[in-house]
Design a binder for these strands. Structure first.
Lengths: 248, 248
DNA sequence: CGAGCCCTTGAGCCGCATCAAAATAAGTGG
DNA sequence: CCACTTATTTTGATGCGGCTCAAGGGCTCG
């Protein structure tokens, strides 16, 4: 049994870092206690698969810390990432037995899991959970549609800039800041994962990252730490000044 | 006032053609009566805009008959369709004041509308509506992610074949048939609308339609009536034999 | 019959993919 | 601590799929 199968942190719901944003966000104290009673934690190492597309999946879960990806593939191996799961995001669908996508950890990942049946029962009794889940699903749908615009109509350079802007924005929101001016963050994705998200090849991703660096839109420390000197400039490069509404 | 603003059909809920699939599908008789009390119909002509992205939208609605599209654009005019609304599909988001996308009728369109506030109130009281809406939203999310794979990784030919397969499938399901063998249907989209859906130009759409016709994958009667001699062959051309799960 | 659409087809070009190889980084075992 | 391995990233050379620009054909409707 690897160290990773036993989390070193197993927060009480009260001081859970995603308490205010996850599927449990709307719950009252008593509702929270019911969730607390059926929850359990699982952790994964980078590269580890959480579930395979098509496999039976008898739990649902929230990402507590770390990053995971949802991917879909064609038989000949072409791969498209269809979701990037960050802390507070929800995985799994009540009322469906099998996983529709591969779920893979890209960093150390801690998930707060609920066996599906008890969770569904609880959802039937507590509208606060169902309400929050609907809200989160509608947000995800908006994000997916935003991504359709990116995949269908943006240039490689715009795609990269959009991805960086989104990660910068979510990183800021996690630290309760407004995205603006100079920002810095770690990019938890390999060039290949970025390519899979953006519908590009990893070579094109690398070339466009170099180009954005040459043009002063970003700076790089090592391969994964990104510094954005001017967030507005990055947004310009992304092609839509509407910003995207990826997250509140 | 155009003829189109007053629908010639205004079905009672009891014999509504989308009764079994729309947001009201799970409602009991009394719940249905409450919906019946606040519903009203609106109809639109081909090309007419239902709402503009960003505009205030104080109703939600179900498509009863006809086809509508959801589109998003960049400032320079690049357009991406992010949803194709067929009968029973739901438009609008409870809990959000403004429309995130352009909604446009592509055929004669009849919508069953509810003012947002009463609908939200009713949703709070009747879990059957909220449940059904969650289910539909999750299905839409799956469809959007399926489309992400298409936009990011499929060739032009595969994209066209995928679109035709999906429309063929939904048309069959509307007529309570299983898609297979020889099929025929009307395509309610112009070449340009197809291009906007597939992330292509209209010229490429036209060329690939011609190519599929030359190769015997489809036959055309006029520009819009499509005959599929062998549905399985079409699925092969679409690139994913998993079929896609676009609709039940 | 003429005016708009919508669609098709052609010619040429460009952005990104493909193929290939070298540079950098991070282990791993001797 | 170093030689060796393996994963990741960068960069270069070349080719092709789909875009752009342009012209012409069919249909519908006044």
């Amino acid at each position: 049994m690897s160290l990773h199968e036993v989390p070193n942190i197993a927060p009480r719901c009260g001081d859970c870092p995603i308490r205010h944003r996850a599927v449990c966000a709307r719950c009252e104290t008593d509702e929270l206690a019911q969730l607390d009673a059926i929850k359990y934690y699982r952790s994964f190492e980078p590269g580890q698969t959480v579930v395979w597309a098509g496999d039976r999946m008898d739990f649902v879960a929230s990402v507590v810390t770390g990053v995971a990806t949802l991917t879909q593939t064609l038989e000949d191996g072409r791969t498209q990432m269809v979701g990037l799961l960050l802390p507070s995001d929800f995985v799994g669908r009540p009322g469906r037995p099998n996983a529709p996508y591969n779920v893979t950890a890209t960093t150390d990942l801690l998930m707060c899991c609920f066996r599906k049946k008890p969770f569904e029962d609880l959802m039937g009794r507590t509208p606060h959970i169902a309400q929050r889940l609907l809200e989160m699903t509608l947000d995800e749908l908006d994000a997916a549609r935003e991504w359709m615009l990116l995949l269908g109509r943006k240039t490689a350079r715009e795609k990269i800039a959009s991805l960086l802007a989104i990660v910068a924005r979510r990183d800021a929101s996690l630290n309760l800041r407004t995205p603006s001016g100079r920002m810095a963050f770690d990019l938890a994705l390999t060039r290949e994962a970025m390519a899979d998200y953006l519908g590009l090849t990893l070579e094109t991703v690398s070339r466009q990252m170099s180009a954005l660096r040459r043009d002063g839109v970003i700076e790089l420390e090592g391969k994964r730490h990104v510094i954005v000197p001017d967030y507005d400039l990055l947004l310009d490069e992304a092609g839509d000044d509407a910003d995207g509404g990826y997250l509140p």
